[in-house]
Design a protein around this nucleic acid. Structure first.
Lengths: 112, 112
DNA sequence: TTCTTATGCATAAGAAAATTATGTATGTTT
DNA sequence: AAACATACATAATTTTCTTATGCATAAGAA
């Protein structure tokens, strides 16, 4: 992600969240989708994305199938059943984290 | 931070945000304040905090003064003038980041 | 009175997760 | 022909944590 070094550790969650929305996606497509959703603010680098995808696959959360389109190979990723559960879990964890973070960034002024 | 490995990269921002609210704080106090604000959800470890404080000081964003209280030394940190500007900048950057992150986590369903 | 917990600082080794650089290959646009 | 886009992948390095360790004082529990 180029938008600074923020949120290291959330890339896997982002990927799985996108795969909840869309049955199957390939790596390059993911980078473009994130770029599109954030109006160019997040730029996922391949050096971060591919190792993440490989790890999630190794953990059994994603499966792959390759397709050849216009003579170029695309490797499509989909959530497995466990991946689906993990996606919900990771997203919930991230959202809970964001709630707490807001409390630190915008603490309620003490009453009285 | 113990609440998982999320949000690496935001600790410096959190520290500076707290110092915007409170003139001067010492390390241990910062860990307790964050714990308090997040109802125990974030636990900042010393191994993360002290190097961060030292780095911010080296960069000229924080100054220190030590005080002895009950025979124990406290090292108080305060924002410098540049630190004040940097704090605003870092917080704004993090908040902008969170806005974009929300767009990825909760994309608006396509119309039509 | 001894052990544990709390307060308070600090550093070092290791792990996790990025960035940056590089490599291969094809297709499209200038 | 050169540049840019599509599409994958890996390696070296950097950043930023976690975990472990160390020192020291104070307070509370056993």
């Amino acid at each position: 992600m180029s938008s600074s070094k923020l949120l290291k550790g959330s890339l896997a969650t982002i990927v799985m969240r996108l795969l909840e929305e869309q049955e199957k996606m390939y790596g390059y497509e993911i980078t473009q989708k994130v770029k599109e959703l954030t109006a160019g603010e997040f730029k996922i680098t391949e050096g971060a994305l591919y190792p993440t995808l490989h790890k999630l696959e190794a953990e059994g959360f994603l499966t792959t199938e390759t397709q050849k389109v216009d003579n170029r190979v695309r490797k499509y990723y989909s959530l497995t059943r466990e991946g689906n559960a993990e996606a919900k879990s990771k997203v919930a964890e991230l959202e809970a984290f964001l709630v707490q973070l807001q409390k630190v960034l915008n603490p309620k002024p003490s009453l009285g």
